[in-house]
């Protein structure tokens, strides 16, 4: 699969700087650190739970930089009124994880 990632380079830079500001350990952010940030969006726990499911691609309870970008992308789109998909569309899967 050779699709461009839907997370644009300029968005990725923004998401990466948020990621770094949260104090990742070993390049990963735990759920404890990500949860308050996502709750800040004022989206429901229902929606945020689905965002987490779609973002934590390896299901290890932590997000790396690319997984975090997926989470932020979905949150931003949800805030713009777009529904969060039930499964992750291929263009949203980070190229590093295909």
């Amino acid at each position: 699969v050779d699709l461009p990632w839907v997370v644009k380079p300029e968005e990725k830079i923004k998401f990466d700087s948020i990621f770094d500001s949260l104090g990742p350990v070993g390049g990963m952010l735990t759920g404890d650190k990500v949860k308050p940030v996502l709750l800040n969006s004022k989206l429901t726990v229902d929606i945020l739970g689905r965002v987490w499911e779609l973002s934590d691609l390896d299901r290890d309870g932590m997000l790396d930089k690319d997984e975090f970008s997926v989470a932020m992308y979905l949150v931003y789109r949800a805030l713009e009124g777009e529904p969060v998909p039930m499964s992750l569309p291929p263009p949203l899967v980070p190229p590093s994880k295909r």
């Binding site: 759920g31 990500v34 949860k35 739970g49 987490w52 299901r59 290890d60 309870g61």
Partner: peptide, 13 residues
């Protein structure tokens, strides 16, 4: 509900 029997890795559940 969580295959593998462990607890959820989802902090929102």
């Amino acid at each position: 509900q969580y295959p593998g029997g462990g607890s959820s890795t989802n902090p929102f559940l």
